[in-house]
């Protein structure tokens, strides 16, 4: 709402759009098969390479990065803690447990049904996390992500145990390692749903911002706090599951990107959410492009690349925070 009072974010929007256009261009033309711009009009093979592989891959990356960053910022506002995201709160691990269960018990189910089961499991995972942190002191912001990481670790260990016992470790590995080399037309379209959820979050941006002021401030403004909390939690669970089912886990995106944007533009989501989404997509694009080039013609998963970069940025954020306080 108050976003209309200010004209500041325009500069950020412009930079985000420029960054995304450039990176998308690079992502489309970088790869093992040679693709040059002039070839698109003369060479039918080049056009099909674009439509079957490069374009879907680039779109998948954008949708993944944007929706993960958006679900990260939603979670941070609802929990009122800067250091939470699906992979530090057991959300992703719970989704993997659900996916394992459905793979074992009903392997013939469609990918969409499997995704729904994973979403249900990750919803349970988030509720478990919310129950846990209710007992923690709010004035100790670092305890919440630490407890979240332990909780995630326990769920992850359970998933590994089940997968080991049932010879499904390879599946688990595919879900844990987010990468885009397998993305082809017809194999990524579920991600559009994640993109739609991110858009839906933008519609409710003001509600999430108010909820970020805390339960009592929200109630005082007449916000239906439980409804907003539910909407947020369901969005986060669905996005996490959709991404895991299609490309695998990409930790840190939902953590690093919202923190950078919050430093730059604050937490008024009506203003900042487009930049969060754009920068999320940008970071994953860069990681994927680096992953394609480092051991050319082989590939390194985007999640591995971002895992290194993201961990460094996360550490810097943690340490930088202390000197701020």
């Amino acid at each position: 709402m108050p976003g209309s009072l200010v004209a500041r974010p325009k500069r950020f929007y412009l930079w985000t759009v420029l960054l995304l256009l450039t990176l998308s261009g690079v992502s489309i033309f970088v790869g093992v098969g040679t693709l040059v711009f002039s070839g698109l009009f003369t060479n039918p093979e080049a056009l099909s390479l674009l439509l079957i592989s490069r374009l879907p891959r680039t779109l998948a990356i954008i949708l993944t990065g944007a929706s993960l960053a958006v679900s990260g910022v939603i979670m941070q506002l609802l929990v009122r803690n800067r250091f939470v995201e699906p992979s530090t709160t057991g959300t992703s691990e719970a989704a993997m447990l659900g996916l394992l269960a459905v793979t074992l018990l009903a392997p013939q189910w469609s990918i969409f049904s499997k995704m729904l089961v994973a979403s249900g499991a990750s919803l349970l995972g988030i509720f478990g996390f919310l129950m846990l942190i209710r007992r923690l002191p709010p004035e100790q912001p670092l305890i919440i992500p630490l407890v979240g990481l332990i909780y995630a670790g326990i769920l992850g260990a359970a998933a590994t145990f089940v997968a080991y016992q049932t010879d499904l470790i390879q599946y688990l590995w595919i879900w844990i390692t987010g990468e885009f080399s397998g993305v082809l037309a017809g194999r990524y379209e579920l991600l559009w749903l994640a993109g739609a959820l991110a858009l839906l979050a933008y519609v409710a941006a003001d509600q999430f911002t108010v909820a970020g002021l805390g339960r009592e401030a929200s109630l005082s403004l007449g916000l239906n706090y439980t409804q907003v909390l539910t909407l947020g939690v369901v969005t986060v669970a669905l996005v996490a599951s959709l991404v895991i089912v299609t490309v695998g886990m990409l930790p840190f995106i939902g953590l690093v990107v919202p923190n950078i944007v919050s430093r730059l533009m604050g937490d008024n989501l009506r203003e900042s959410l487009p930049v969060v989404a754009g920068l999320g997509a940008g970071f994953v694009l860069v990681s994927d492009i680096i992953g394609r080039l480092v051991r050319y013609p082989y590939e390194i998963p985007a999640s591995t690349v971002f895992g290194i970069v993201g961990a460094a940025i996360f550490l810097w954020m943690l340490l930088g925070r202390r000197s701020h306080a």
């Binding site: 709402m1 108050p2 976003g3 009072l5 200010v6 506002l77 009122r80 803690n81 800067r82 709010p138 004035e139 912001p141 003001d206 911002t209 108010v210 970020g212 002021l213 805390g214 009592e216 401030a217 005082s220 403004l221 007449g222 916000l223 919050s262 604050g266 937490d267 008024n268």
Partner: peptide, 22 residues
């Protein structure tokens, strides 16, 4: 209410504007 926990990073003008929310 009494302030608890971390404040989110809103501009003061935006915060006051949210008072118009109802």
């Amino acid at each position: 209410s009494q302030e608890v926990g971390v404040a989110s990073r809103l501009r003061i003008k935006d915060l006051v504007a949210f008072g118009r929310w109802p």
